[in-house]
Design a protein around this nucleic acid. Structure first.
Lengths: 252, 252
DNA sequence: GCAAGTAGTTGCATAATAAGCAACAACTAG
DNA sequence: CTAGTTGTTGCTTATTATGCAACTACTTGC
């Protein structure tokens, strides 16, 4: 099937602005290899619906709040977000940490919901962020839902090291995934950021496919063995309940 | 300036899906008054970037998670969200309720951030939702940032009553706004939903314009006069601090 | 303060694409 | 099993998107 080139270009503009924050018409024209008047008109269409906005008169452009309206409609309709919400909140309250829900999207973990305990240390909102798969608990759970061949395809290329603890050898990651599949959850310590740890478990659909990952994360100094045991058990229970609400049946 | 018709159509498709949840190619073609093959190709462009997805093979279409990636980039770059975040969290902890941030968007309050105290009763995520101005504390704060003529223009038509307490007379709303401007905050009880109350205060930019509204909301039974006093004072203090971080200077 | 350069905008002509049509495959309903 | 509907796709052409040139507005350097 065919796409529509001018729509493709408009969407590329949105991606450029998402990646770079803000850009001028001439800069975007250079990146798309089209004339700046073309970009100006494409941006006009996007601006009419608040998908982009201009910093000031004749200034650079950035993403606008119209995107958030569409996003609100999207999460409101994501079954897994809806079914998980109340469980995420009780889990956050029970553990005193941050609970996240992530789905696989274009070779990364896309965070789609977040609930923080009020006592949680961090205030970063991960929703909408695309986070590397190999260095996070959510990422490893999502990878564990794939075959080893699929994993190797997704993790092609050199895996970046974010800390001295990041596992960057694909073979070692694949070996870890066997353990994830066996245990039904994974604990990751200091791989994405020093001082940040998390435990994650899979959320399955009616067919048993891993469609999301739910995690509890917090500062490493609070991730004692006792907390990991308690949070892990509670997390697995919650993720199972979300899966059940989505139609999954554990026949074992 | 001109827009690009095919991009306009593609964005209309996104809006239809945001409003209706899911729709088929033929349905969308009817609404846009174009041929279904046109819709099929426009959807192809949107699907290639995960902005829409198909429920199952040859089924209806709905918004996809690609929107969330753009949304994450948008909130990450909204200055007011960034500056407010830590204050929102401390306010949620201090009051034990839910704190929201909303901006004006197309005649409604668009919720752009939310922090819940773990003890908060509700689990509804308002981010991305467009909420009526006349029936909410955030809405009334955003209206109070306009002139009376602008208010009357925005509130054209019959105002829906959501509960028996909803103020639906435009004149009465306008009169309330004078009070909001004087007091610097507003309390709204049971107007959007029975049992839901909130207090809100304005966030200003460097020019003093009201660019967002910050609120504390919770169940009416917890919104005692004492809580309103305490939360109101704390909220006004936080909203002022966010305004200062954005460059506003209160010279009084 | 002025000149030169750059960025974004817009009218117009035309090159290129988007769109409609027809036909098809796949699915649903009776 | 048949008829009807939906979504897809090859092809042609009607229509639009695009580039160009010229313009306004702004920035930078002297």
């Amino acid at each position: 099937m065919g796409t529509v080139q001018s729509v493709d270009r408009a969407l590329q503009i949105l991606e450029i602005l998402a990646r770079d924050g803000e850009r001028g018409v001439t800069e975007i024209a250079g990146q798309l290899d089209v004339h700046k008047s073309t970009v100006s008109r494409l941006i006009d269409s996007l601006a009419e619906r608040d998908l982009v906005e201009q910093n000031e008169s004749r200034g650079k452009y950035r993403l606008g709040v119209g995107i958030l309206r569409l996003a609100g409609a999207t999460t409101a309709r994501l079954d897994v977000v809806q079914e998980a919400r109340s469980l995420s909140r009780s889990l956050a309250a029970a553990t005193g940490e941050t609970v996240n829900l992530a789905v696989l999207s274009e070779g990364a973990a896309l965070y789609v919901d977040q609930v923080e305990a009020t006592s949680a240390v961090q205030s970063h909102n991960w929703v909408g962020q695309r986070i590397p798969l190999h260095a996070t608990s959510n990422g490893k759970v999502l990878l564990a839902g794939m075959s080893d061949d699929e994993v190797r395809a997704v993790l092609a290329g050199e895996l970046p090291a974010y800390t001295t603890r990041t596992v960057t050898d694909v073979g070692e990651v694949v070996a870890q995934l066997a353990g994830v599949r066996h245990d039904g959850y994974v604990v990751v310590v200091d791989e994405l950021e020093h001082g940040l740890s998390a435990v994650a478990a899979p959320v399955r659909n009616i067919h048993g496919d891993v469609i999301a990952s739910m995690s509890v994360s917090g500062p490493t100094f609070r991730f004692t063995a006792e907390l990991v045991d308690r949070a892990g058990a509670e997390l697995v229970r919650c993720a199972l309940e979300v899966s059940r609400r989505l139609g999954w049946r554990d026949l074992t």
